[in-house]
Design a protein around this nucleic acid. Structure first.
Length: 793
RNA sequence: GCCGUGGUGGCGGAACUGGUAGACGCGCUGGACUUAAAAUCCAGUGAGCUUUGCUCGUGAGAGUUCGAGUCUCUCCCGCGGCACCA
């Protein structure tokens, strides 16, 4: 490729100059603000992926644009640098995770810097540095103080390949998100954050946010609210009761049997009453051995076993009904037991058919005579409740049987402890005498020790560290032991956006004042994969800190956009396995950062996934060459002719609006149109300057270079964003489309504002139109001013 | 299954509240420059046909309308989320 401009030279030159001028440095509290944020990367050993520059270019364009508009813009960058890959690398290669992480960050930083993003690097954060994780530990202590961090023995997700527990959010389709190993359930004593404390607010406030519908529903589904009632069923000849949660108390008269989860405590408690306990035990063993995936496989036939000798009483009609256990009932949702209404629930219906159980219709379906009807309707066979609608009956029947209305959620508390090394230590000490004792704030940070063996054994490697593990109790001074688990890396990333506001504060995690000025984040761009993890956690932490008086807003991220995946040329995901990965370094080398930035923005809408196309990059490079060539050879006009003025103002308008809407692809298209128009013409230097400012957020290096070459003294980024004049965009001559019966037949050019009478006359005089009307009577004449005419004959 | 989202040339994609479908870019075709090529520049480029022009055309089918890529209904397909959640 011939190069008309030397991108390697000028991009380096301006990056150094901007650094030297510190033009991207921002101060707290100066004028109107924008906080524009891209999700900080995990600095992996593979280096930057072309997906990173996509989101980061988008935030950079927005940041530069708002600076041109006079805003004080915070656009920071940092490293989400704790985590498993560095530790696994350490196990394999014997390099300490700290060293490996340091090296990776260095590579990432070089790569990111080569793209010319306008970050304020003085605010760089690094979650694995003690200056940072000190405050992650502080956050833990604050949550602990308020009982929102607690330790509990519970069935948890365990990945036997990663040798650690996982949060629910890290289990995808029953598999470990990281290594795709089957996740198994284990009863372990683990630390949790009580996200459920804020569940109602987390759900409710989603609607008010400027997020994509997809993101909103994903998060709502994850929270999984359902409203229903809690009802109790007596178990005959015992003092026990079975509690169930149901969303359909209106169908209670149709409950013909009950089902317990195999793990339900009553099964063991009442084993003396169960005549076939041997068989039952066998069934329980069998379902325990099934993986999560098997158990939740929808296609499999339901199985279960009757608990012989146990009879429950339907509280609505005092009927005796049998009790089963079946693994289609989950132990960790609701009460782990259900009332089964086969006439009005698909699963119960299937089960009842298989085991020949009674089916009683209690809701009249509209018209169909099917046995199964799952909708709402009018009650029948329900004694005095007959004739009520479902919604009326829900309350009344619940009241009658002394139940109560209840809301259930799918979301669980956040499991935050991990049995691995490369994470923030949990600031807790266990003392035989005093119990669980939090590390006093003044003793933070609890430093991650070096005398450990990284080999994962299922216990945290910190267990082996003499310097770390054995400690004095802060309360009584006796021998005590530290908590050896570390925190989930998502704890670190749940508050990093706060730290940027005050990144070098060593007295507190952030000053209230700095948060008050910068937050909430005005625009947050990142991948959709964080919909249920990071974004829920950050919202939870924000609400918690608000309630503790540290900040004064409810939601951290007012507006989120999720950049789409960049696929490989073969439309598959880029992957080392397929050998189709594009390295941004190569693209920057060959075409330059400006070209890469603009190409990624030109590929399509930000939120769509789109395939890479090597040829497509050339189009952008050609465009930039054209701009460079044209600008540096410009024969200045004294005055712009009308056509130039018009296209310039049109372009200003389009680019301005498109940046605000993050429609970067069409903004670029309009700048190309501008160039296509003016290359044949001479324009004034003033107009050229304006155009260069429009382009500068997209291609900062080349615009800065041209700006200098055409004799402007100051950096282009000291300018104001150009304004457009709507009046100058309007054409005097306009093209009117002429349709006959809705079909385009001709167009005419007329003066703007022509009267309906005049244009009708002109239109009817057109030979083509005459031909189509052909003496027929005109039934209707439709005129859309300055646009079109439709003649109906 | 439920929820969300999308389906437009050879390709990536444009089209504001219904109003000239295919902007912009890639590719392709022809031409200029060149010994030649690359690069660059100019022209063309949805399909079909009986080619001054006409017909068809935005996943399929119906509807509303003077007029539908855009609105309504039914269906098909892709992508993403949840999924035996009671």
């Amino acid at each position: 490729m011939t190069t008309y401009y030397n991108h390697q030279k000028i991009e380096k030159k301006w990056q150094a100059k901007w650094d030297q001028l510190e033009i991207n440095r921002v101060e707290n509290g100066k004028g109107k603000k924008k906080y524009i944020l891209g999700m900080f990367p995990y600095p992996s050993g593979d280096g930057l992926h072309v997906g990173h520059p996509e989101g980061y270019t988008a935030t950079d364009i927005a940041s530069r644009y708002y600076r041109f508009q006079g805003f004080n813009v915070l656009q920071p960058m940092g490293w989400d640098s704790f985590g498993l890959p560095a530790e696994n690398f350490a196990i394999k290669e014997g390099v300490h995770p700290r060293e490996k992480t340091k090296e990776n960050i260095k590579t990432f930083k070089r790569q990111i810097k080569s793209l010319g993003f306008s970050y304020d690097w003085s605010r760089e954060v690094n979650t694995s540095s003690p200056d940072y994780y000190k405050w992650t530990q502080w956050l833990f202590l604050k949550l602990y103080e308020k009982d929102l961090a607690y330790k509990k023995k519970a069935p948890v997700n365990w990945c036997d390949s990663c040798k650690t527990v996982l949060a629910n959010e890290q289990v995808v389709q029953g598999k470990c998100e990281r290594c795709e190993n089957d996740v198994i359930q284990k009863d372990l004593n683990q630390w949790f954050f009580k996200t459920t404390e804020y569940v109602e607010e987390l759900l409710e406030k989603i609607d008010g946010l400027d997020w994509s519908q997809a993101l909103k529903t994903t998060q709502k589904n994850w929270i999984g609210k359902s409203e229903g009632a809690r009802l109790k069923f007596k178990v005959l000849t015992t003092d026990d009761q079975i509690e169930v949660f149901t969303t359909r108390p209106d169908t209670l008269f149709g409950a013909t049997y009950m089902v317990l989860a195999p793990e339900h405590e009553l099964v063991n408690k009442l084993k003396g009453n169960i005549e076939n306990f041997k068989e039952v035990e066998k069934y329980i063993e069998k379902s325990k051995s099934k993986s999560n995936l098997e158990r939740t496989d929808l296609n499999k036939e339901k199985s279960g076993i009757k608990l012989k000798g146990l009879i429950a009483i339907n509280p609505a009609n005092d009927k005796e009904i049998p009790i089963y256990i079946a693994d289609y009932v989950l132990t960790n949702y609701g009460t782990g037991a259900i009332m089964a209404v086969p006439a009005h629930d698909e699963r119960d219906y299937e089960f009842a058919k298989k085991y020949n159980l009674e089916i009683i219709d209690v809701i009249k379906s509209d018209d169909n005579k099917e046995e199964l009807f799952t909708g709402d309707g009018i009650l029948i066979n329900s004694d005095k409740f007959d004739g009520l609608t479902s919604s009326e009956a829900i309350k009344k029947i619940t009241n009658k049987v002394d139940g109560y209305l209840e809301t259930q959620y799918k979301i669980r508390d956040w499991l935050v402890s991990r049995q691995r090394y490369w994470g923030s230590p949990i600031p807790i000490i266990y003392c035989d005498a005093c119990g669980t004792v939090p590390v006093p704030e003044k003793n933070l940070p609890v430093i991650l020790p070096d005398d450990v063996d990284f080999k994962p054994t299922g216990q945290s490697p910190l267990v082996d560290s003499k310097t770390f593990h054995d400690v004095k109790c802060p309360k009584c001074g006796d021998k005590a032991k530290r908590e050896v688990d570390t925190m989930d890396t998502f704890v670190c990333s749940s508050w990093y956006f706060l730290r940027y506001c005050d990144a070098s504060n060593n007295k507190e995690p952030f000053s209230k004042k700095s948060l008050k000025y910068w937050l909430p984040v005005d625009l947050y761009i990142g991948g959709m994969e964080h919909a249920v993890g990071h974004l829920i956690y950050s919202r939870f932490i924000t609400k918690f800190l608000r309630d503790q008086g540290y900040l004064n807003f409810d939601e951290p991220f007012t507006k989120i956009r999720n950049q789409g995946l960049i696929l490989a040329e073969d439309s598959r995901k880029m992957s080392k396995r397929w050998g189709n990965v594009i390295n941004p370094d190569d693209v920057v080398d060959e075409f330059g950062a400006d070209t890469l930035r603009m190409y990624e923005m030109f590929m399509g809408p930000l939120e769509d996934s789109k395939p890479w196309n090597k040829r497509g990059i050339i189009g952008i490079r050609r465009f930039l060459e054209k701009v460079y060539k044209y600008s540096t050879n410009l024969k200045e006009a004294d005055k712009d002719d009308e056509e130039v003025t018009k296209i310039l103002h049109k372009t200003i308008k389009k680019v301005t609006e498109d940046i605000e809407n993050l429609s970067f692809n069409t903004a670029i298209a309009s700048m190309m149109e501008f160039m296509n128009t003016v290359t044949k013409l001479n324009i004034t230097k003033d107009s050229l300057n304006k155009f260069l400012i429009l382009l500068a957020p997209f291609a900062p290096h080349i615009c800065e270079e041209i700006n200098e070459e055409i004799g402007n003294k100051e950096t282009i980024f000291n300018n104001k964003w150009p304004k457009y004049d709507e009046k100058l965009i309007i054409d005097d001559k306009i093209t009117i489309a002429i349709q006959v019966n809705g079909k385009l037949r001709d167009t005419i050019i007329v003066n703007r504002g022509i009267s309906e009478k005049d244009i009708k006359k002109q239109a009817l005089d057109l030979p083509k139109i005459k031909k189509f009307i052909d003496g027929n009577e005109i039934k209707k004449f439709i005129y859309v001013p300055n646009k079109l005419i439709n003649l109906v004959v």
